[in-house]
Design a protein around this nucleic acid. Structure first.
Lengths: 331, 331
RNA sequence: CGACACCCGGUCGG
DNA sequence: CCGACCGGGTGTCG
């Protein structure tokens, strides 16, 4: 008996969110939309059909053709940890392409999230992800030399592409453990990427981070942050803060997705992030950050973000060709 | 209060042995020389000075200029792997050099060991162990060209001394990996050495082998041969068989000790075993052995052992020349 | 019990 | 500089 693919449609105050193939996925992407409602369908096409026909005033999409530059082949050895990663000095960037990027009201329109690939054998005909969807893919990683030992040293790495100025290679603040580093790397992405309406895909090799931020958190928020064994969740404040960053993005119209990639499998992006994270271990110690305070500051944007405040993501978005190549990589 | 370095000088029948920093070390290296005498010094330099000036006919350190490029020094390449190592056929051993070599009682005489560099932070002299203890020292090593690759080829080497007929240079049976070769080399020692009451010291550069056969095995036997990560132990049968060989020795009154020596550190014995192991890689492929069956055969002695049943170890004591050369090697 | 990371140590090779 | 063969250990959760 063939499994039936089930589609969900999520709405929030008349604003579309997307179509999802699993309840968890939908749940995850709807966080921060208090009144979200779901409509369930037997088949994915049904859901998509309904979704399309019921969209509010969606502007007909202008083909965003070739978005750019070369950055020919992507190679790990190309990773350039910026030594000048310190403060200030916003890099002199070439003119941002005079392209559109329409100014929106702070309250921007959320974008569609592509359904998960679903590696399952047979598949009902899949609706292609909306062509106009623009995606930004970034890799995060944490490293921790001597993890578990007395003199452990941890670093975090964020990789967008070779020589991309948004790349990060930093020392992990506070407690030096692998999982904290992994988590903070993700938080740093969200702190440093200028907001846009592009779907933001953060790829991590830490199943712990992915689960903490998309699955386990659902339970934790209901049970007072208790582990299955009754213990308090270990990196509660950090996780809560990071969740807040994600939800803020969602609220302002930028879908954020956390994807798992296997570590040390020749994945170009993962290797790049790894190199940056390892490099971060060499930087001087820095004090713990006040995650609660940061969260309470709500939508306050950390200083570091100023570095990239004037960067147009369009300059660094993958070209269609690069994206294809990358997607093909893991078959 | 400054610690005092203590030096020992050991002699045996007018032949020098070396300088040692601890009593145990000296004791260990002099075992088998019934009449060994020790002279004690307050400082290591004192001992070394005395040792140097009191050497028997030592050539006045002639600038070792042209050290006869060919084979003069006892070097690994000098080792003669016996190709006729196969079964049965008790090899017609070439007459032991017509030189002296006084016939001794079957009580085999262990070989001389060069003085150890002694990095030790010093030790006060302790009470000597039972003087009558006799030790046999042997070096084992494994090699594996293209380790991890598809066409890997592994060999094993066992080194007792230059041209010692007990030396082994064989192709590794079954799976070709470095660790298996290392392990099997040790097993081969135990299979080929005639039983006696002499303490048998097997020196290996494989910490993996040493730990597997002396530490980890304790846990494995209690937890059902599970690795720390829950996976089954990799060379279980081989390890279990080898442990059985060791325990059989112990039961029959022969202590067996596994010692770790750093690889590629100019250690004469390790280099010799290495050469033999590398040579073993050139021999034709041989099938995997039935380790479980062998273990179940209990104390059955493999056929090959017959080869050495009638060998008098006294035939292979180092000549004075060999000893000199060996001593010169590590300064 | 399971999973994913993060390491530490040793050897063997190209 | 790279890789594979082999262990033990912690960080974290279900």
């Amino acid at each position: 008996m063939p499994k039936v693919v089930t589609g969900f449609y999520a709405v929030c105050k008349g604003r579309e969110i997307g179509v999802f193939t699993t309840w968890d996925e939908a749940q995850s992407h709807v966080q921060g939309f208090p009144g979200a409602k779901f409509k369930k369908f037997k088949t994915l096409p049904e859901a998509e059909q309904w979704y399309k026909t019921n969209l509010p005033q969606r502007p007909a999409n202008p083909q965003p053709t070739t978005t750019t530059p070369s950055t020919s082949t992507v190679s790990a050895s190309n990773v350039v940890p910026r030594s000048s990663r310190s403060v200030g000095v916003s890099p002199v960037r070439s003119k941002p392409s005079p392209t559109t990027v329409p100014k929106l009201v702070p309250q921007s329109v959320p974008r569609v999230v592509a359904p998960t690939p679903a590696p399952a054998p047979v598949q009902l005909p899949r609706i292609a992800a909306p062509k106009n969807t623009t995606v930004e893919i970034v890799y995060s990683d944490g490293a921790c030399k001597g993890n578990g030992g007395p003199g452990a040293v941890a670093g975090i790495g964020v990789w967008w592409g070779p020589n991309d100025p948004r790349n990060l290679s930093e020392r992990c603040p506070g407690g030096q453990t692998n999982n904290r580093a992994e988590l903070i790397a993700i938080a740093r992405v969200l702190e440093t990427v200028p907001k846009s309406t592009n779907t933001l895909i953060i790829r991590t090799d830490s199943q712990y981070s992915q689960n903490a931020l998309t699955k386990w958190c659902l339970n934790w928020r209901k049970n007072g942050w208790r582990t299955a064994g009754g213990q308090p969740v270990t990196n509660k404040e950090l996780i809560d803060y990071t969740l807040n960053l994600i939800e803020t993005r969602h609220r302002s119209g930028q879908p954020v997705r956390l994807e798992y990639v296997k570590g040390h499998s020749g994945d170009i992006g993962n290797d790049g992030a790894d190199a940056l994270a390892v490099g971060g271990c060499n930087l001087p110690e820095i004090p713990e950050r006040d995650w609660v305070g940061l969260k309470n500051a709500y939508n306050a944007v950390p200083d570091i973000m100023a570095d990239f405040a004037d960067i147009d993501p369009a300059d660094f978005i993958l070209s269609d060709e690069d994206l294809m190549r990358e997607l093909e990589e893991d078959f």
